[in-house]
Computed example of a mutant assay.
Amino acid sequence: MKNMITHILCATDLSKHSAYTMCHAASLAAATGAKLHLVHAVIPMSDETKTALRMYMQASGSGEAADKARHDYAKTVMAERQKEFWDHVAEEDKDIRKQVASIELVDGYPAEVILRRAAELKCDLIVIGAHEHGFTQTFLGTVAKRVLRRSTIPTLVVPYQDTNKNT
């Protein structure tokens, strides 16, 4: 039987929980030999937000400057999360890092970005984390539900893991 999983898309929201989700994605990549693609969606600013920025900042290009600042911040957090994750990977598992084919920040709404990039990269599996608020909001979260509803490939939803909980 041929290897069915060759490309895995791991969607991250850049939360602390995202390392737990990435751990599952990396383990699957190691077990299957698949390439691993990491993606984070940068949600576009609404027109109202851009208008407010222009009004209060009284500068042309304030919306573009704010977008750039948001991207720069997301890049910084993505780099920090990656460093934290790889610093805690056991030495014998560090070679998994060679299977990371791409790390991207993509403008757009998360579910649409995840589904579009999975299709463009010809991924065989999507790995996404569940919502951290648990049952007080929704079990999965809006993004995970939208991805599950529309995905045409297997999708693994990693349950939220409370690392502060004493069990």
Rank of each mutant, 00 (worst) to 15 (best):
H71M: 10
L121R: 05
F139T: 09
A90P: 02
K122Y: 00
E132F: 02
A111K: 08
L140V: 07
T76W: 06
T152F: 03
A101L: 11
D124K: 05
I126T: 01
I126K: 01
S151D: 02
L140I: 03
V106R: 10
L125H: 00
P110H: 02
F139E: 08
K98V: 02
R149P: 00
V106W: 06
T138K: 10
L115Y: 09
K75R: 12
R149V: 01
K98I: 01
S151F: 02
F139R: 09
R117C: 04
A79W: 05
V143F: 05
K145C: 07
R117L: 06
G108R: 04
E92R: 15
V147T: 07
D93M: 14
D93Q: 15
R81M: 13
K145Y: 08
Y73S: 10
Q99I: 02
K98D: 15
V77Y: 08
C123D: 06
R116Q: 12
T142H: 15
E92D: 15
A130N: 07
V100D: 15
F139A: 12
F85Q: 12
L140D: 07
S151C: 00
E120D: 09
L115I: 09
V106Q: 09
V127W: 03
L148C: 07
E91R: 14
T136E: 12
H88A: 15
R117E: 11
A74H: 07
A119R: 07
V89Y: 05
S151Q: 00
A118P: 10
H133V: 08
A144E: 05
V143D: 05
T152K: 03
W86Q: 14
T76S: 10
Q99T: 13
E84H: 12
Q137H: 12
E104N: 12
H131Q: 09
P154I: 03
E80T: 13
I114Y: 04
K94M: 13
Y73D: 10
E91P: 06
G108Q: 07
G108S: 04
D72P: 10
I128K: 02
R146I: 00
T142S: 15
A90M: 14
D124S: 04
K122D: 09
T76D: 06
V143K: 03
